[in-house]
Structure formats: C-alpha cells, structure tokens
Design a protein around this nucleic acid. Sequence first.
DNA 1: CAAAGATGGTACCGACCGGTACCGTTTGAC
DNA 2: GTCAAACGGTACCGGTCGGTACCATCTTTG
Lengths: 207, 207
Amino acid sequence: MAVRARERLLTTAEELFYAEGIRAVGVERILSESGVGRASFYRHFTGKDDLVVEVLSGRDERWREWLRTAVDGYDLPPADRPLAVFDALSERFARDDFRGCAFINTMVEAADRDSAAHQVAAEHKSSVTEYLDTLLADAGRDDHAELAPELMLLVDGAIVTALREGTPEAAVRAKRIAAALLARQPDPADPREAVRRRLRVVTGGIR
Amino acid sequence: MAVRARERLLTTAEELFYAEGIRAVGVERILSESGVGRASFYRHFTGKDDLVVEVLSGRDERWREWLRTAVDGYDLPPADRPLAVFDALSERFARDDFRGCAFINTMVEAADRDSAAHQVAAEHKSSVTEYLDTLLADAGRDDHAELAPELMLLVDGAIVTALREGTPEAAVRAKRIAAALLARQPDPADPREAVRRRLRVVTGGIR
DNA sequence: CAAAGATGGTACCGACCGGTACCGTTTGAC
DNA sequence: GTCAAACGGTACCGGTCGGTACCATCTTTG
C-alpha cells in the first residue's frame, strides 16, 4: 500500500490530464478518482505543478520506449525503418482515447515558455527528433541531419491533423509525404550537398 | 461610445486568449484590460462561451483574408502560388507575439469535440484546406484534391514546430518538404492516377 | 432640453480552485 | 505483537471563477 498512492496518483493524473487537459482537471478530481487522500498527495508532491512535471517525464520515457519497440517490431531493413514511424503513429491515432500529443497540448496550455511543464514538453520533442536522426543515419542517409527535423515536422503535423479529423488517415498521408521527401533528388547547388560530397570522399562510403 | 464596448471586448479577449489561452483568461481580466463594465459585457454576450465563439469567428475571417492578400501580394504565377503560402507563414512566425494557431490551441484546450468553440476551430481548418485546393487547382495540378490535405498537414506541422522552436525556420522547412511533394512523380499504379489520366483525355487538357 | 439607452463601477452570489492542518485508521517491518 | 510510517477522510483557508443585480453617469436621439 505504501508505494501505491504515488503510483495511482501518477496514472490517474496522466489519464485525466491527457483526456481533458491539465488546467481542466483539478486536484480534487485526481484525488477522488484515484482514491488517494488529500494529505497523501501533498506528501508525495509539492503541488500540482510538481505532479504535472512528474507525469510528463514518465510519459516521455514510456512514449519513446513505445515508439522504439513499435518500429523494431515491424522487423524491417534499416532503410525502411524511418517510414515505419508513421505506421506506428497510425496505430496510436486509431485508439479511441487518442487526443493528440500530450506534449504539444502541454506547450499550448502552458503558454509560459519558462514553466517547467513547457520545458519538459520541449525536451521530449528534441529526444524524438534525435531518435529520428539515428533511424535516418542507420538507413544510410547522408542528409540525416536535415531530414530528421523535416520528419519531425511531419510527425507533429500528422498528430495535429489526426486530432483534428478524428481518424488515423493522417498517418498514411504523412507517410506519403515522407516518402516523397526521402525520394527527393539532392540539389547539387545546395552548399550542404557539397559538404556531403566531400565527406563521402573522405569516409570512402564507410559509415 | 455605444458600439465600442462590444468591439473593445472582442479585441481585448482575442489578444488575451491567444497569448495566454482561453481557460487561463478570466472574464474579470478581460473587463479590466478593456475598461468595460461587467454589466455591459453580459449585455453583449450571453456568457464567456459566447464571447469565445464570437472571437474565434472573427479571427477565422480575418486570418483567411490575411493569407489570401499575403499570397496575392507576392504577385506570382499561379504555379508558384501554393508554395508562397509558406512564405506568408514565415512572416507570421517571426512576429514576437506568435503563439501558434489559435484554432489548434482551441481544439487542444476545448477537449470536448461537441463544444461550439471546438467546432468553429475545426471549420476554420476546413476552410483553409479549401483555399489550398483552389490554389493547387489554379496551378494546374490534376491531383489537387489529394495535395490540398497534404499541404494542410504541412501547414499545421509548420505552425506547431514554429511554436515549439520559437523561430520562423519551420516555414522554410515545410516549404522545402512541400516542394519535394509537388515534384513527386505520379505513381502509374495508383488507381487515382488512372482516373486522372482518363479525365485528361476527356477534358483535352482544358481546366 | 429632456427622455431613453448604453455605459463603467461595485457589491454580491454560489462554486470551485490549490493548499494546509489535523484526525483516526491501516499497513508493513522488526 | 509493537511501533512508526504511510495512509484515507474531513474541515478549513484565502483566492478566483463565471454570473447577477443595482447604481449613478454619460451619450445620443428626438
């Protein structure tokens, strides 16, 4: 029983925050739905803001772990794995409790960029972009550093669109765009491309 | 003086709602910053929800008008106008009061899909998608019906990314992706492509 | 100039917000 | 079996929420 109160608070709060928004859910609500006493809550967390940060940190960890295992689960060759991210997203979008990205939602709700919640949310996105970067590098893309933020933009676009439309269709749409992006011919006039050409000579194609 | 109270309420509320969020801004705040008396407010609006809907409707109208004139202002040939949308967005992102898309933010804050605010926000996005569709059709794209929602996904992705990163760079990123998308070679195996081939024969290339 | 209507200001309402203090009970470790 | 720690429940705090009622003032219209 001892450790459970904190755990129950975290899971209950996460569900409610995600489903209805952080501001929209009061402490009282979390207490009654989790069955935790008021005093116990303030024994485990310094306040609601603390709980919010803790919830988001946990979700960040689990969300990225979920994406990794989902992409791994498709058992694809490295070249096809970046696009598989959108197949994973599609599964997520289809869930009937889908309500967008908890971290985007947090950045929208917590307008103050300096707030702890806002920063945790921002860091989550950086971490995911990093993951996309490794997927692209492992796929043998010289231009992984430019592609990663572009794919991330597509991921966020897909999430917002799915929230708006209420269907998982946005995932296949984003995947189609991503495919066009990955098929893009490098522009020889792009100075970044010149750098990559030089790099390829140096490394001899070894990654 | 008579008509001004309503106008002041709308503009003040729009600024505050956009900057800090709808839930975060109380009626009291709107009254004090607009200098309107409490009774006057409830004479013009049935309540806060009513004000929210009215604010969003006005913003929808003005935002779309802004986009139209911005794109027109570049004075480009029809084929280049779809991509110009992202140049317009870039201007928007650079403003220091930029805080994302008021309508996305509203859909995030008003979790209830049936709420009036949520629906106004959803309709806004449909209207913009429609506008993109006409831009693409005027550019001579047979596949405008598929491209429009794809561009819309890029627009929303760019907005969210710009909010997250705090710089207008996301606009040029999205534009780059859109360029790759528009350069995409049609897939002859796609059944929609077969339809378009037949259509081209029928119309003889006349739009 | 006078009547009518819109106005800003204030007091007030019940409800809920996040947070504190104290209660008696339950639990797990020794 | 004992004891300390964690627990659930409740009462209470000041503050704010959205909304109503009433007031004196000001502007406009006729």
